[in-house]
Simulated scan of single mutants.
Amino acid sequence: MKRGFAPWADPSQQPLVRFDAVTKRFGDVTAVDRLSLDIYEREFFALLGPSGCGKTTLLRLLAGFEAADAGAILLEGRNIDGVPPYRRPVNMMFQSYALFPHMTVAANVAFGLKQDRLPKGEINARVAEMLALVKLERFAHRKPHQLSGGQRQRVALARSLAKHPKVLLLDEPLAALDKKLREETQFELMDLQARLGTTFVIVTHDQEEAMTMAHRIAVMDHGHVKQVSPPADLYEQPNSRWVAEFIGDINIIETVVVSQTGDHAVLETAAGRRFSVGGVADAGAQAFMAVRPEKIRIALTPPLGGGLNHVAGRVVDIGYLGDMSIYKVRLDDGSVMRASLANARRGSERDIVPDQPVWLSWPPEAALLLTK
């Protein structure tokens, strides 16, 4: 479903959720500042940002747990400001799961349905459907303390989905899980969302989690949206230095634009080193060249054919990550660049070691030109 799913690119499509110049303050602190954002039906949308950026506040505004100080929130084109949480076709799954410890799994899932006074037969059928959906049928009569963390997370998910909400809000839902279970659950959530067709909005500070699951990601900082893009576009085409540095690992070099030819620019550092990069900027403008570590080739000899984008340095540190290694290389001007290399061979067979002179090189199209 991810491939080819892009309702935001179709002008005829109307968003399911629209934040229109929304502001929320807590005393002197502005948590959300004149923020506008569209989320579409069947989309898996992620709100990503550092702690205190306003992402959870935005989720609570949509859920109805907070009221906006300015602007409007629309669901299916209808302003839902003032509509209480229990009357919104939205459900929220909390980070703590908030399960009732004295109730069984089945009773936890049924709780919201009983509050809505649904017929008993319909409740039982819906509970069975949800438990089958999250593969917990045989745990229906257990209490939460008799479950693992991953199982409790699934119970909370089943309870959140039982009322068939138009939008499911997930506030750091995988934070309590260990790394391996977290990764497995990410793909389970993706499959579940695709099967149900429910719009999911997830809050996370985990970049890898957002990149794995979401159709689009809104990167937030200090109550503002810095960029909204699909994961690949966000990683490969960040719109600012801040976003480039927040998403993944990247080398940033401060430069001045020397010349522009077609869609390529020549940049120069304060030390007089020149680079070629794809992008357009005015000659004389301050600019940043950004290049991801995995785009850089590290070798013991200079690259053949010369070219602008190569530098010499000395390895000062190596970080072994299992599938790859990160090499920190100090250049002649004292700056440090990072390059990554897949560990295709055993550690004892690798050629590059600490304190060794090396060359770093990269093609112009591998680098980004950022002007802000």
Rank of each mutant, 00 (worst) to 15 (best):
H310C: 03
A290D: 13
G278T: 13
V316W: 04
V336D: 01
R273K: 03
G307I: 10
E294F: 05
T255V: 05
V291Y: 09
A271T: 05
A281T: 09
V316E: 15
V315L: 09
V311W: 10
I296S: 04
V315F: 07
V266D: 04
A283G: 14
G307D: 06
A271G: 08
V329C: 13
N309K: 14
H264K: 14
L300K: 12
M337Y: 08
A299G: 15
R292D: 04
M289H: 02
I318N: 04
R292H: 08
I298K: 00
A281Y: 08
K328R: 15
D323M: 02
G279L: 15
M324H: 09
A342Y: 12
A270V: 08
D332E: 14
Y327S: 12
A281S: 08
G334V: 12
L308A: 05
M324K: 07
R297H: 13
V315R: 02
S325G: 03
Y327H: 14
W359G: 11
A344M: 03
V277H: 08
N343A: 07
T269I: 04
A285D: 11
M289F: 04
G307K: 11
A342S: 10
A290V: 08
N343F: 01
N251Q: 13
R350P: 01
F288Y: 15
A281N: 07
Y320P: 01
V256Q: 14
I250K: 00
I253N: 01
D323H: 08
L341M: 14
P293V: 02
I252Q: 04
I298P: 10
V258Y: 03
M289T: 06
T301K: 00
Y327N: 11
S259D: 15
I318A: 11
V311R: 04
I253H: 01
R350L: 07
H264Y: 05
S361L: 11
Y327I: 11
R273F: 07
T301D: 15
V257I: 12
A339M: 09
L360F: 12
V358C: 03
R274I: 02
W359A: 13
S348K: 15
V256R: 15
R345I: 09
V257L: 13
L304F: 08
R330M: 02
L300T: 10
L304N: 13
G279C: 08
M324D: 05
G278F: 08
G278R: 11
W362L: 09
